[in-house]
Design a protein around this nucleic acid. Structure first.
Length: 161
DNA sequence: GCCAACGTTGGC
DNA sequence: GCCAACGTTGGC
């Protein structure tokens, strides 16, 4: 069988959908729709039940990792791609062969302290993190186990990092 | 609001 | 298949 639990990071603009919105959602769960980038989609397709997700607020002040979610439903077609009224409508995607997927994620935990990019950049152990790469725009990205552990340790209370 | 870094599109 | 033009993301 495959490896164990894997780790990911997903970006959302808090003005559009914040971690508090996730916590307030029915069953604390939402479908992650609107992804229209193939690399990000492929990462979602690789997600398994129970995979853990860092929830990141982009276009925020400051941009920060704010908590944890988990995958509760694996990839399935994104309904918004077929809805002409939806901003994410994709006229080229056919229902027989959907181009875009979602996964469902559920709220797990909100950090006591949000971890800004500045704070994360100050962590030598996070040097190779995709999020911190200059020009990194991927809205769904993998996180290494060591990076996950470090970020969560920071989020649980920044006493000694 | 600026702009760097990408991704996509379309002419050729 | 190249590449210029254009659109988007997202930090600053």
């Amino acid at each position: 069988m495959g490896e164990g639990r894997q780790y990911w990071l997903m970006k959302s603009e808090p003005d559009v959908f914040s971690i508090d919105d996730l916590a307030r959602s029915p069953n604390h769960t939402t479908s992650w729709n609107g992804v229209r980038n193939y690399q990000a989609r492929n990462f979602m397709r690789a997600m398994k039940l129970g995979d853990q997700v860092l929830f990141y607020h982009s276009n925020a002040n400051p941009p920060s990792v704010v908590g944890i979610a988990e995958v509760v439903k694996i990839a399935y077609p994104d309904a918004t791609q077929f809805d002409p009224q939806d901003p994410h409508f994709d006229p080229a995607s056919k229902p027989e062969q959907p181009r875009w997927d979602v996964v469902d994620i559920r709220f797990v935990h909100k950090f006591e302290t949000s971890l800004s990019l500045d704070v994360l950049r100050g962590q030598p152990r996070l040097k190779g993190m995709e999020l911190l790469r200059r020009g990194s725009r991927l809205s769904v990205q993998p996180v290494r186990a060591a990076e996950w552990n470090q970020v969560v340790r920071l989020g649980r209370g920044r006493a000694d990092g």
